[in-house]
Design a binder for these strands. Structure first.
Lengths: 136, 136
DNA sequence: AAGATGAGTGGTAATTATTACTGATACACT
DNA sequence: AGTGTATCAGTAATAATTACCACTCATCTT
C-alpha cells in the first residue's frame, strides 16, 4: 500500500485497517467485512477481500494461512506464533520466543531458498474446555 | 480404519492407501484421485475425499492443513515438519528434529490445552529457483 | 474548470475445494 | 436366499474466494 505511489488510501482501506487493528482475534475476511460494514454499510465483500490481500502483499498486515477452511488476517506484523482451537477454530497469539535461527538450519539441510517459518500450535481453548466440562 | 470393527477394508481404501504410500509428495485429494483412478477408473472423487478424511481421523494417515488452498495428505504419520514452495505450492518434508518440549512450553504460557504443533517453512524450491534464473 | 485517465468500488457471476445426498452395490450374518 | 448396513459412484449443494464489469471518484492536464 505504500509500495506504489498510485495506490490510494481510500476510506474503505482506512476503515478496514482501523477495524483490523482494533482486534487481536485474527478475523477471517468475512468477520472483517462484518466489522467494517457497521461503519460503511455499502462496502462490498469483494472490496474487503481485495484490500486484505493487497495489504498483506505490501506487508502492512499479515495473512495467516493456518488450518481450517478460511484465511485469517492480523494487524500485528512482527513475527509471532499462533495457537488454534480445534473445537471452535479461533486463533490466538502465543508468546513463545521466535526462533530466528531455525531458518538457517532449514536452509542448510534443504534445497529450498528458505524465506520464513511459522509455528501453529493446536489444542482446545479454555472456553471450549469449560463447555465440554459442563456437558459431562 | 482399525478403530471400529464394522469398518471394512475395501478395494478402494486399500488402493488409496497404497498409492498414497508410494509417494512422498503430500498430494492433494485431487492428486490422490488421479493416482487412484489409473487403477480404479470408476472410483468417485467423493470416495477419495471420504476415505482420506476417515483415515486421517483414525490416524493411519496425516491430513496436512498447510498454507495454500487445498488440504494435503501424507502416509508418513510420525511427527515431522514441512516446507512449502511459495511459487509452485509443493510441500516437502524437512528433516529438522521435532521439538517435543515446546508443547509443554506452550501449555505453560497459554490457557489452551495444547495438543500438538506443526512448523511450516516457506521458501522457493530448487526447481522454481532454476526457472527464475532461466528467465533472467 | 472541463475533460481525460485510471485506480478503486459495489454488485454479481464464476470458480475452486469440499461436503452432502441418493439410489445402487456388496459384504456379513442369519 | 434374505435382511441389514457399510460403502460406493455420481451428482447436487455449499463455502470460500476470485474474477468481472459498469460506474464512481481522485488526480492530472490542458
Amino acid at each position: 500500500m505504500q509500495l506504489t505511489p498510485e495506490m490510494r488510501l481510500t476510506t474503505q482501506r482506512q476503515i478496514i485497517l482501523e477495524e483490523l487493528g482494533k482486534v487481536t482475534s485474527h478475523p477471517t475476511a468475512n468477520e472483517v467485512y462484518d466489522m467494517v460494514r457497521k461503519r460503511l454499510p455499502r462496502i462490498g465483500l469483494g472490496t474487503v477481500y481485495r484490500n486484505l490481500e493487497l495489504m498483506s502483499e505490501t506487508g502492512i498486515i499479515l495473512k495467516l494461512e493456518v488450518g481450517g477452511t478460511q484465511k485469517r488476517f492480523d494487524a500485528t506484523i512482527d513475527p509471532h506464533y499462533h495457537i488454534r482451537c480445534l473445537s471452535c477454530g479461533k486463533v490466538d497469539d502465543i508468546e513463545i520466543p521466535v526462533m530466528e535461527d531455525i531458518n538457517k538450519t532449514a536452509a542448510d539441510i534443504s534445497k529450498y531458498q528458505v524465506l520464513g517459518h511459522h509455528i501453529e500450535f493446536s489444542g482446545i481453548c479454555s472456553e471450549c474446555n469449560d463447555n465440554a466440562q459442563a456437558v459431562n
